[in-house]
Computed example of a mutant assay.
Amino acid sequence: MKYKIAIVDDHVLIANALKSIISNFPQFEVIHISENGLDLQQKLNKESEIPNIVLLDVSMPIMDGFETAQWLKENYPEVLIMALSMQDDDKSLIKMIKNGAKGYMLKNAQPTQLIEGLNNLMERGQFFPDWASSKIITSISGNSTSIESCVDFSEREKEFLKYVTTEMTYKEISEIMYCSPRTVENYRDSLFEKLELKSRVGLAVYAIKNGFSV
């Protein structure tokens, strides 16, 4: 049995290169390529074949990766989404996870990393870059218990967690929380210690998973 993959990327050369690489993986096959989310919608609405995985470019015209991921989440929740990006951008990662992506890969990845990612997605339901800690992965997979049952948060830390999932900078968060940037950094550092995390991505994913997001 081969797992079916759909590629959504407005760069024809990249899409065809991905298809060529995947053709060397015996357990996977590319069933179609779309130029954007709208093109994918039309193909899925017309065809009976539903992919197991959608390799989804984040930045596209007409209907980008964020909108497409949200649409897939609502209409084809069984489809696993692997976001593709040119940069290791925290904001894009956080937003794609909020919109339903179960994986995230940079476009400069090696073929060995691509097959590893695809296999992990099918076998474990997720694949994220090394800079996403194991605790983040556990949270995304749904195997962790609620944060509040494990950690004692202050009300201000809970408020900060809501804003950390947005695209606001720490300075902008401090303004909306009516405190200094240094105070916001203190909330961040306190949460890093309590949750044993090292990045804003980690805090954001925990917040999303546990209902703290705005």
Rank of each mutant, 00 (worst) to 15 (best):
K4F: 12
K4G: 05
K4R: 12
I5E: 03
I5K: 08
A6K: 11
I7P: 03
D10M: 09
H11V: 14
V12T: 15
V12Y: 15
L13N: 11
L13A: 14
I14C: 15
I14Y: 13
I14P: 06
L18P: 08
K19R: 12
K19G: 04
S20I: 13
S20K: 15
I21A: 00
I21M: 02
I21G: 01
N24A: 15
F25L: 04
P26V: 11
P26I: 05
Q27D: 15
F28Q: 07
F28H: 08
I33G: 07
I33F: 04
I33P: 03
I33W: 01
S34I: 00
S34K: 02
E35Q: 14
N36I: 04
N36K: 07
G37H: 00
L38D: 11
L38E: 13
L40R: 02
Q42W: 12
K43G: 01
K43I: 09
K43F: 11
L44D: 07
N45R: 12
K46I: 00
E47Y: 03
E47C: 11
E47F: 06
E47S: 15
S48T: 12
S48Y: 04
S48Q: 11
E49H: 11
E49S: 12
I50Y: 08
I50T: 03
P51A: 09
N52M: 08
I53T: 00
V54G: 08
L55W: 02
L56Y: 01
V58K: 00
M60R: 04
M60L: 00
P61S: 00
I62N: 05
I62A: 09
I62K: 08
M63D: 06
M63S: 08
G65R: 04
G65V: 05
F66V: 09
E67W: 06
T68H: 04
W71M: 03
K73A: 08
E74F: 07
N75G: 09
N75F: 02
P77N: 04
P77A: 05
P77V: 03
E78N: 13
E78W: 06
V79S: 02
L80C: 12
I81L: 01
M82L: 15
M82C: 11
A83D: 01
L84K: 02
S85D: 01
M86D: 12
M86Q: 14
M86L: 14
M86E: 12
Q87M: 13
D88L: 10
D88V: 06
D89Y: 08
D89R: 00
D90P: 15
D90M: 12
K91R: 15
K91H: 14
S92N: 15
I94A: 07
K95L: 12
M96V: 07
I97Q: 05
I97G: 09
K98F: 11
K98E: 12
K98M: 13
K98I: 10
N99C: 14
G100Y: 10
A101Y: 07
A101K: 01
K102I: 06
K102M: 13
K102A: 13
G103K: 01
G103D: 09
Y104C: 01
M105D: 03
L106K: 05
L106A: 03
K107M: 06
K107S: 03
N108S: 13
A109F: 14
A109V: 14
P111A: 01
P111Y: 02
T112F: 13
L114W: 05
G117Q: 05
N119T: 09
N119G: 04
N120P: 06
N120Y: 01
N120H: 03
M122R: 08
M122C: 07
E123C: 08
R124H: 14
G125E: 06
G125H: 02
F127S: 04
F127V: 06
